[in-house]
C-alpha cells in the first residue's frame, strides 16, 4: 500500500490526541483553570490536527460531511461519528474543568470510552479489509489501541502506566510482524486464484495492461521501501519503545519526559510508514507483484 503522509500523520497524531483524552476523561489528570486549558489544547491540537490531515487524502474534501451517514455498514463512517461525538463530549467535560473547576466524572468516563471507540474504529478501517491479509487480524486494533493509550499516558505524564503500555505495544508490534509477514502466503489468494488459470500450469504476468503506471499500481503496489524494512523495524522499535522506556526509568525530569515523547512520536511515525509500505494488497497479484 502507498504510505500516504496524510494518513500516517492522521493515525499517529489523532491516536496520540485521543489517547490523552482517554487519560483526561478517566480523571487520571484533573487540572483546572489555565492548566486544564493547556492540557485540553494539546489533546485537541493532536486529535483535530490528525483528523484534518486525513482530509488531504480525499479527492473531494468539501463533501466530507456526507461521510457521517453510513454508520450501519462503514467503519470509516463510524470512525467519523465516534471522533466528533468524543470531541464534543470532552469539550463539555473540559469546559467544566477550565471554567467551573468542576469534575463532571460521568461525562469524562463517556468521553474516555468514546476516545477508545474512535481509535478502535480507525483500526477497523484497516482490519476489515480482506484484500490486505496482513491487516485483517485482531492484532491490528489491539496494537492501535495500545499505541494510542500508551502514547497518551506518555504525553499525560502517567509514568507507570506508560511503561506498562509501551511494553505491551512493543510485544504486540513484534507479534504482528512475526505473524503478519506470512499472512498473504497463508491467505489462499495467489496468482492462480486471481486468474483462475492455475489448473493449466504456473502463471506468470507476461504483459501489463499498459506500458505506463496507473492509479492501482501507485495506490496498492509499493515496493520501494521494502528494501530497508528490516532496518526500519529496528529503528522504529528503538525510537517508539526502547528509548522512551529508558528515558522514563531514569530519575524523572521534564527534559527526559520530553525526549521520551519526541522519540516515541518519531518511532510511531516510522511504524505507521511500515504499516502501509509493507502491506500487500491482493490486486498486486494481477500485476505479478505484491
Amino acid at each position: 500500500m502507498h504510505p500516504a503522509s496524510s494518513v500516517i500523520i492522521f493515525t499517529t497524531f489523532s491516536g496520540l490526541g485521543f489517547g490523552l483524552l482517554f487519560w483526561l476523561g478517566i480523571g487520571a489528570i484533573t487540572p483546572t483553570g489555565l492548566m486544564a486549558l493547556i492540557w485540553f489544547a494539546i489533546a485537541y491540537l493532536a486529535a483535530v490536527g490528525g483528523l484534518l490531515a486525513s482530509t488531504f487524502h480525499l479527492g473531494r474534501p468539501e463533501r466530507a460531511i456526507k461521510a457521517f451517514s453510513q454508520w450501519q455498514t462503514s467503519w470509516l463512517s463510524r470512525e467519523g461519528i465516534c471522533a466528533v461525538a468524543t470531541l464534543l463530549i470532552m469539550a463539555a467535560y473540559g469546559a467544566g474543568l477550565v471554567f467551573f473547576d468542576t469534575v463532571l466524572a460521568p461525562l469524562g468516563w463517556l468521553g474516555a470510552a468514546g476516545a477508545l471507540a474512535t481509535v478502535f474504529t480507525t483500526a477497523m478501517i484497516y482490519a476489515q479489509l480482506k484484500t490486505v491479509p496482513r491487516w485483517r487480524h485482531w492484532s491490528t486494533p489491539a496494537l492501535f489501541l495500545a499505541l494510542s493509550v500508551g502514547g497518551g499516558a506518555l504525553l499525560g505524564g502517567q509514568v507507570t502506566e506508560a511503561l506498562v503500555l509501551l511494553g505491551l505495544a512493543a510485544a504486540l508490534q513484534v507479534y504482528t510482524w512475526v505473524t503478519g509477514d506470512t499472512r498473504l502466503a497463508r491467505s489462499g489468494t495467489d496468482m492462480a486464484s486471481a486468474t483462475g488459470l492455475g489448473h493449466i500450469g504456473t502463471v506468470r504476468a507476461f504483459e501489463p495492461p499498459h506500458t505506463g503506471t496507473n492509479y492501482l499500481m501507485r495506490e496498492f503496489i509499493h515496493v520501494v521501501g521494502r528494501k530497508h524494512a528490516q532496518r526500519l523495524r529496528i529503528i522504529a522499535v528503538a525510537l517508539a519503545f526502547v528509548l522512551p522506556i529508558i528515558f522514563l526509568l531514569v530519575p524523572f525530569s521534564h527534559i527526559w519526559g520530553a525526549l521520551a515523547l519526541v522519540s516515541h512520536i518519531a518511532g510511531v511515525l516510522v511504524l505507521r510508514w511500515l504499516f502501509f509500505a509493507q502491506a500487500e494488497h491482493v490486486v498486486g497479484l494481477y500485476y505479478g507483484k505484491r
Binding site: L58, R60, R63, A64, K66, L76, T131, N214
Partner: peptide, 27 residues
C-alpha cells in the same frame, strides 16, 4: 455527486475494478 474520493472502496476491491480519477477526484 456523493463521492468524497476517500479510496476505501478501491482498497476493499480485490480485483482493482475501481480507479480514483485524478482530475475529477471521484471514484
Amino acid at each position: 455527486a456523493d463521492c468524497i474520493g476517500c479510496s476505501l472502496c478501491a482498497w476493499a476491491c480485490p480485483y482493482g475494478a475501481r480507479e480514483l480519477d485524478a482530475k475529477a477526484g471521484v471514484m
